[in-house]
Design a protein around this nucleic acid. Structure first.
Length: 228
DNA sequence: TTCCACGTTTCAGAGACCTC
DNA sequence: GAGGTCTCTGAAACGTGGAA
């Protein structure tokens, strides 16, 4: 469990500025894609801070996680702690971008895992002899008839050229086309997502600007009332 | 395929710190 | 001083890659 008081490291307290530094580094390095970048983020944060700051890759990960959690819960008070309104707004924007990064990476990982599962399932079916060739191939396969088990050795035998290669090539081409279509679709989705995010960011900026103007007007009004 | 080593992530306990 | 939050820490769980 935790070390006795004597050996415990002094606690690192993140100020609003430190958080901003950290978030900027996280956004620049993207440790969600490359885990090893956590170390680089920690190093950069250390260099950019004017105090003795013992930040490890683990601390970077946990602090970012905590800030994201607060952001997701819209925990205004916690995020705003010891920071100005501007810092809070900047922090929110950075967190929004980091969240998008994390979500993108998560989606990619899930897609990869799904594809792997699919491939493993197909391979298993072939090994078990439960694989069903497409109709156009069945007529060309040596000894194929309904109910006959298709084993790995059988699927390599095709009437005429004794090879399944042309079929596999065609299958591969079709799969490649589907994959390309999926990739293009994903690109479109990402583009739309980014546009939406930019729009929301603009709206937020606009709102802050409006609030500022309103505050100024209010101050002016108060001054005028006080004078008269 | 199994085993092992190593790295990463998650969880829970406890101390440090802050606010009221 | 009490209570809540943040941070640090070790342990366990999990993932991955290489060797046998």
């Amino acid at each position: 469990m935790a070390l006795p008081k004597l050996f415990r490291k002094t606690q690192v307290i993140f100020s609003a500025k430190d958080d901003l530094n950290l978030l900027k580094e996280v956004l620049a390095e993207n440790p969600y894609k490359y885990k090893t970048k956590l170390e680089a983020v920690a190093q950069n944060v250390k260099e950019n801070v004017d105090k003795v700051f013992n930040v490890t890759s683990r601390r970077v990960r946990e602090r970012t996680q905590l800030l994201l959690q607060q952001f997701q819960k819209e925990n205004y008070e916690a995020l705003k702690r010891s920071g100005t309104e501007e810092e809070y707004t900047e922090k929110q924007q950075l967190l929004q971008e980091i969240q998008s990064l994390a979500e993108e990476e998560d989606k990619e990982q899930k897609e990869k895992a799904q594809q792997k599962d699919k491939d493993e399932h197909s391979a298993k079916l072939i090994r078990k002899g439960q694989w069903k060739p497409l109709p156009q191939l069945r007529s060309q396969m040596v000894g194929y008839s309904e109910g006959v088990t298709v084993t790995p050795s059988k699927i390599t035998k095709i009437k005429g050229n004794e090879s399944i290669m042309p079929y596999l090539k065609e299958k591969c081409d079709v799969e490649k086309d589907i994959k390309m279509a999926e990739v293009n679709l994903r690109k479109e989705e990402l583009k739309l997502e980014r546009e939406r995010f930019e729009m929301e960011r603009e709206e937020r900026k606009q709102k802050i600007e409006n609030d500022k103007q309103q505050q100024l007007l209010l101050m002016e009004l108060i001054k005028t009332v006080q004078k008269s």
